[in-house]
Amino acid sequence: MQGLADGYFVLPYTLQNYLADQITVGHISTDTPEFDEAEQSVRQREERLMENGKRKTENGELHTVDHYHKALGKIMWEYVGMSRNEESLTKAATMIDELENEFWQHVQVPGDIESFNPEMEKALRLADYFELARLITADALHRKESCGGHFRTESQTEDGETLRDDQNYMYVAAWEYQGHGQPETLHKEPLNYEHIQIATRNYKN
């Protein structure tokens, strides 16, 4: 599954061509406004995370990064699993938002920004995971059909197999980030099959 998800098999056929010319570019200076802007934004996030050590939840508790990571995982497992529906996805979207707010308010990151800090590393990664979780949920809500690993219980055949809606959803949904909390912009990349016949796979026979 990991091999499929992170493009382990796809990368060797694509990336080296894309990057090959970069060898002529040489060393890229960090003395640029773009670099400064990126560094600043990361630093701000870090400082924000560090501040939480001074605040507590209503019950006087702070939680570790792992605590929020597991909580997020449980939401995704339960409501955005292989089998999902409108209700579970809507609920998940709300829960993710609530958890993320709590995370930014109450996560405890020990240590400091200047030294080697794996907890900070984990916290920043988790902050990105929240974005990803929200997007996966939104995409699942958007695609009102069952296709591959995305099984909308509302869209299935009589004997419980996936029911695609090729008329309305034969495209790759590529979402463009518009900033934290803003809905992403959808770019449809239509799937046009010229040489093959589209069919529904049947595992039973």
């Binding site: 702070l62 570790t64 792992d66 605590h67 405890q108 020990p110 240590g111 794996p118 907890e119």
Partner: peptide
């Protein structure tokens, strides 16, 4: 262990 160390403020993880 690290969860313990952080929550109970015993030491750096």
């Amino acid at each position: 262990l690290n969860e313990q160390l952080i929550n109970d403020h015993i030491a750096h993880p």
